Amino acid sequence: MPRLTVLLPVHDGAATIGAAVRSTLRALPRDAELRVLDDASGDATARVVEGIADARLRLDRSARPLGVAAGLNRLLAASDSELVARMDADDLTLPGRFARQVRALRRHRADLLFGTVVQFSSGGRRIRPTAPTGVSAAAFPLHLLLTNPVAHPTLVARRAVLDELGGYASVPSEDYELWLRAAARGHRLVRDGAPAIAYRVHPAQVTASSGWRRASWTDPATAGAFDRLARDRLGRGARRLNLLAIDEALDDAGFATELDDFARAVTTAADRLGRVEAGRVRALLARRLDAVRALRRQERRSHEPA
């Protein structure tokens, strides 16, 4: 039985899957495996993967499209390792990633551990590192109430925790919804500062779509998970900030009141952290408040008569 399984679902990823798989295998320990799910691709994805000879590589194929969440759950069910990691078909695993992350998982006593990323674009190969800043288990839930502070393909997790949570839900932001559920149940989520992947930025990404973003903001399951975490960490229910901004039934006075109440609750919770971490949460809160107010103004203008 391998100790670590890396899950990689892919649909029509022939152009990038080879580099993603090879970089992952180079960083993969001997007692680990990489499981790729070809999710009903119409291109040469499967042939590219089949052309890579490595005993640690497993290829599964689905004749009908499953989507990311169902595909990940299928890969989880097909494996039995103690630890589970994620990778995407258009990113690159950085050297030494898994050895570093397994050590960090133990060091932080984490249940779900994430890394940071360096960003690059396919065209100009532009590399843009993010600040190698960690987020502790104590601060992580507050970050989650403000934004999604991690990239899904940097994950390494304890399988027992994913099993307890029931795996991924079929919602627009299946990763963020899972993090919310995990944090609300008291599991330890940590972002280690060390970069884990080179993250490819391109216009075709699902998360770049305005339709996808709105579907995520209004998804009932994600809203419920968010509210449960808010009640656990803030002592009160709350709605996602972007949902407030696009709520047409909420007048400006109600918007301002709900936003101010949320900000006070987050600030009070942040004050229980150490000085540095509290300062980071307050700075992130200030940026998010500015962004959601700007989104609100944009929404109001878009509904004005022409």
Rank of each mutant, 00 (worst) to 15 (best):
M1R: 14
R3H: 15
T5V: 15
V6K: 11
L7S: 05
V10E: 10
D12R: 14
A14E: 10
A15T: 03
A15S: 05
I17Y: 07
A20Y: 13
R22I: 00
L25D: 01
R26D: 14
R30Q: 10
A32R: 12
E33Q: 15
V36R: 13
D39Q: 05
G42A: 09
A46L: 07
I52V: 03
A53H: 13
R56A: 06
R56Y: 12
L57K: 05
A63P: 06
R64L: 10
G67F: 11
V68K: 15
V68W: 15
V68C: 11
N73Y: 07
R74G: 02
V84R: 04
A85G: 05
M87K: 06
M87C: 06
T93V: 11
L94Y: 01
P95R: 07
R97M: 14
R97I: 05
R97H: 13
H108T: 01
D111W: 11
L113Y: 06
F114E: 00
V117C: 05
Q119H: 13
F120N: 00
S122T: 12
R125E: 08
P129G: 02
T130R: 15
A131N: 03
A131L: 11
T133P: 06
T133I: 15
T133V: 15
V135C: 06
S136K: 03
A138D: 10
A139N: 05
P141D: 05
L142M: 02
H143Q: 04
L144R: 03
N148P: 03
P149I: 04
A151T: 10
P153L: 11
T154M: 09
A157W: 07
R159A: 01
A160W: 12
A160P: 15
V161K: 12
L162V: 03
D163L: 08
D163P: 11
G166F: 12
Y168N: 04
P172W: 14
E177I: 10
L180E: 02
A183Y: 13
A184W: 08
R185I: 06
R188E: 02
R191A: 14
D192P: 11
D192K: 08
A194D: 10
A196C: 15
R200Q: 13
H202N: 10
H202W: 08
T207S: 14
W212R: 00
A215F: 03
S216Y: 06
D219N: 07
A225V: 02
F226H: 04
R236G: 01
A238H: 07
L244H: 02
A249F: 03
A253H: 14
F255R: 02
F255H: 03
A256E: 01
T257N: 11
E258L: 11
L259V: 03
A263H: 03
A265N: 05
A265E: 02
T267D: 12
A269L: 07
G274N: 06
V281F: 11
A283P: 01
D290F: 13
V292Q: 04
R293T: 08
L295D: 04
R296Q: 02
R297N: 02
E299D: 14
R300S: 04
R301I: 10
S302H: 08
H303N: 06
